[in-house]
Design a protein around this nucleic acid. Structure first.
Lengths: 133, 133
DNA sequence: ATTTTATTGATACTGAGTACCATGACATCG
DNA sequence: CGATGTCATGGTACTCAGTATCAATAAAAT
């Protein structure tokens, strides 16, 4: 909640409401969802605030295979996502192995690696059970 | 060019034109680009054909950090992308290490991994020279 | 050649996100 | 505490990617 002050942004009612709503959310929420829960806040403001939070590194967008953009809180500092291809549920994971791998890869890639994104498409445990049950 | 027959789609003039144009393209083209080169083909048809080719595994979409969706020919069977954060140029690479890593990761991830996507954000050699030159 | 069926393209639409701009809220300085 | 400059709001109109619709048309099958 201190993101605003930390970055010199004004602490306004709409922004506080959005951040508060976000804090109670699972990874993989949509902007529409936030809008529904905060009808008193304008659509533009929600987008603006999400963008602001992305720049602050608090929220990240994930691009799914088939459109429908979702967002996730970056509670874990640097992380990657799993997306269930059946139910669309989004999870987070962190693996030092990934980072090590990328360092190893650097030699084979022309240019300087400045960032990366790893997304895993999975069938989550719930959906696996549904299938076999 | 045999994608169409292979999958039971009709071989039509617009589709052939699109595929032909695609074949002369670097990774990272946009739909708009194709449209400009083929003004006689309707916008909807270009999107439809690109979609069809994605389903056939011939084309893949890449989601850049900041919007502007691009596409790339899957000349290499399974591969990943590098995107230059300066000039936007897109490259492809393939690394067995990535695949091995993911197999190793499978134990730590709940559910079944059915696919993955790895994107590297780089400063490409051209842009590195510009910077230091 | 004729009929069936897939495809086209024009247009209208959706959904995510942004630009614009007058109104209103925040912080600051007195 | 009140005036003031600046930043934020939200409504609306817009852009941009992609899709739905549908009458007209081209490909394939007969």
């Amino acid at each position: 909640m201190s993101v605003l002050e930390d970055r010199g942004y004004r602490s306004t009612a709409p922004r506080r409401a959005i951040i508060c709503t976000l804090e109670g959310k699972q990874a993989g929420f949509t902007v529409e969802e936030i809008g529904n829960e905060l009808p008193e806040v304008g659509r533009a403001t929600i987008f603006r605030t999400i963008k602001l939070l992305m720049e602050a590194g608090v929220v990240c967008r994930l691009n799914l295979l088939d459109g429908a953009p979702k967002y996730s809180l970056s509670s874990i500092e640097h992380h990657h996502h799993t997306v269930c291809v059946r139910c669309g549920n989004v999870g987070e994971f962190r693996a030092a192995t990934v980072e090590r791998l990328l360092r190893a890869l650097a030699d084979d890639i022309p240019g300087d690696i400045v960032g990366h994104r790893v997304e895993l498409y999975v069938t989550c445990n719930d959906c696996v059970s549904d299938e076999s049950g």
